[in-house]
Design a protein around this nucleic acid. Structure first.
Ligand SMILES: [Zn+2]
Ligand SMILES: [Zn+2]
Ligand SMILES: [Zn+2]
Ligand SMILES: [Zn+2]
Lengths: 140, 140
DNA sequence: AATAGTTTGCAACTAAGTTGCAAATAATTT
DNA sequence: AAATTATTTGCAACTTAGTTGCAAACTATT
């Protein structure tokens, strides 16, 4: 278990267990968003699927990862890069999903455009999902 | 069965059946987005849930309704107002979900802002989900 | 009215997600 | 470092969501 990962877990008042460390490491290595199924595949029979569900839930609560809504209705999870904390997410960024390889990126450094609503509507948050071809798929 | 509804079904080369007419009428009355569960509740025991699944799927294919991705992962469906056709949707509009009443609106007349992506990424479509308080909930 | 084509409901199934609880593991105290 | 306490895990059982095959019912066509 890497010290860096133990640090992150401790900072969120979570005990450093094998499963949490392994799943957190997976996110760091991937650098992109993952589904529950992705994680189940990559960890093989190491952990029970219930443990994966509970770990993801805990990570979302603690502000370690955030969820991404998708058109095909599979929940995606990605590392929070801003300093999110317990019950206080501020991952206000655009998400990009590649039509070709399905990889999902958090575009942290792109500005969210301002959106004007009709009279009577008040805005509290915005989720922007962009589809297209990613950097990687374009290179080939 | 209203003639207007039969018209819409015929135009999409669908036979005018009780269930299709009733479900289409529901969408017209609601004016907002509905989930599979909403429809199941509103139609009571009139139709089998399998029929509802199949009807929604058919309507999406034929360009009568479109799906809306949501943060909490429930698939929402809403009437297409643009002239969508079989396999060719162009419902390029913002979706608004009320934090208070959960009603979901298609904001057809609001412009989609242009989004600039990092080098190497190419855009093919955009889904914008806005959360906040709706017109209706503000009036009270 | 008869026929051909399509849609529906049922039953059975697969997949996704949740819950309770005892055993195992991690953190804290002595 | 061992014992105690608190937290987490895995299993089994369950609920909910969605799919598939097929015979019966319905719609459209002749
Ligand atoms: Zn790609
Ligand atoms: Zn993100
Ligand atoms: Zn409202
Ligand atoms: Zn819409």
């Amino acid at each position: 278990m890497k010290t860096e990962i133990i640090e992150i877990l401790k900072r969120s008042q979570l005990s450093a267990t094998e499963s949490r460390a392994a799943i957190l490491a997976l996110f760091q290595e991937a650098g992109t968003a993952l589904t529950h199924a992705d994680i189940e595949k990559k960890t093989g029979a190491l952990f029970d699927r219930v443990t994966i569900y509970r770990t993801l839930q805990t990570f979302v609560e603690k502000g370690i990862i955030h969820t991404i809504p998708t058109a095909d209705n599979a929940i995606l999870y990605a590392l929070c890069k801003d300093n999110c904390s317990e019950g206080n997410h501020h991952d206000n960024h655009i998400h990009f999903i590649c039509d070709n390889c399905s990889t999902t990126y958090c575009l942290d450094h792109i500005n969210i455009p301002e959106i004007k609503l009709p009279k009577g509507f008040f805005i509290s948050g915005t989720d922007i999902l962009v589809n297209g071809i990613c950097k990687n798929c374009n290179d080939n």
